[in-house]
């Protein structure tokens, strides 16, 4: 049995979600202790429990400790099944974190899946729908994944009420090595708003457009019909190898310009350290490891990424190599572990 210390690295929910995803794909049971031990309120919160329940459905798993506040969990998958279901997440938890947890397993399931997930589609501290749709999913499709994600209804934290629909068919992932190519193609900026003063989205896109020199025709602000107030702004940038996406969320009492600056800052960081940004680096590691190999170049590794590598190496016979690359960057390579 694999034992994971929940306080490893940044000590949050990511180590739990990565472990669930890996356990489902490999069929290896695991125990995680001191769940979210690095957080002020440790233990399972509702959104983490939603991931555990969703994973348990996919893997027909036997679970111990799946209750609120629990600091330890034992997870034993018995199958890797697909199919249809609806998952509802309480307290407007992020749908996209559930997508990340179950998607790898659905690609390795014995049948096609059609999973509806209700909750928040645009939550701070979680990937937005647009990030998954435009940055992450195209890359794993290129690796061979047959997957679509549809935004049925946006739902902003804290009201929630959104829905995404994840459809996946059994697939075979192949290794992917991303070239270190940073020539810039199209750059766009988009904002969506729901029930917030009319010009918030416009002020955001305008600020970003001016800072980054984006043509006006690549700028758009839309009003969406969500069941609560919310606002999200993002920049999408094409390079020869991939599309990156940088997201910011409006919040009560936060100026539109501050949100815009955060997104523009992230974009400029990426221009220094690309072609893979810190979040995408984080997300790519698991599919590459499942495919058995791959490489990409990114900025200095975040603690999130290091935690992810450590967790993946507990479940899969792979090793990550992080080599220095030009401009203070890191070349991440994953390959088969050489038996010692």
């Amino acid at each position: 049995m694999i034992t994971i210390d929940g306080t490893t690295g940044e000590g949050g929910g990511q180590v739990l979600r990565t472990s669930l995803a890996l356990s489902l794909v490999t069929g290896s049971p695991f125990t995680i202790e001191r769940i979210r031990g690095g957080r002020a309120k440790p233990g399972l919160m509702r959104q983490h429990l939603a991931c555990v329940r969703a994973a348990a459905w996919v893997g027909a798993a036997v679970v111990e400790g799946d209750e609120l506040g629990s600091s330890a969990l034992v997870f034993r998958p018995t199958a890797s099944r697909g199919g249809e279901t609806t998952i509802r997440i309480g307290s407007a938890g992020s749908c996209n974190l559930v997508v990340q947890t179950v998607l790898p397993a659905l690609l390795y399931a014995d049948q096609p899946s059609d999973v509806r997930i209700e909750g928040g589609t645009h939550n701070p501290l979680a990937p937005s729908f647009e990030y998954l749709d435009q940055a992450f999913l195209p890359l794993i499709r290129r690796m061979g994944a047959d997957v679509t994600l549809e935004l049925v209804r946006p739902g902003f934290a804290p009201a929630g009420g959104g829905e995404v629909r994840l459809r996946a068919r059994p697939s075979r992932l192949t290794p992917l090595s991303l070239p270190d190519a940073t020539e810039l193609g199209d750059v766009r900026v988009d904002a969506i708003v729901s029930s917030v003063p009319g010009n918030v989205g416009f002020r955001e896109t305008e600020r970003i457009r001016r800072r980054l020199g984006i043509p006006v025709e690549h700028t758009r602000t839309r009003t969406v019909a969500a069941d609560g107030p919310g606002n999200c702004v993002w920049v999408t940038a094409r390079t020869p190898a991939l599309t990156e996406c940088f997201v910011g969320y409006g919040d009560r009492g936060r100026r539109a310009e501050a949100v815009a600056d955060e997104v523009a800052d992230a974009y400029e960081q990426w221009r220094r350290f690309g072609p893979v940004g810190p979040h995408l680096a984080d997300q790519l590691m698991l599919p590459l490891a499942l495919a058995g190999g791959g490489a990409f170049t990114t900025g200095p590794l975040t603690m999130h990424s290091e935690t992810n590598q450590w967790t993946i190496e507990r479940f899969l016979p792979v090793r990550f190599a992080n080599e220095p690359a030009a401009g203070g960057r890191v070349k991440v390579t994953v390959g088969p572990a050489i038996p010692e």
Partner: peptide, 11 residues
């Protein structure tokens, strides 16, 4: 009443 049911760590 809505807030009562929206707690992240209590249900």
């Amino acid at each position: 009443t809505v807030g009562l049911c929206a707690q992240p760590d209590w249900q």
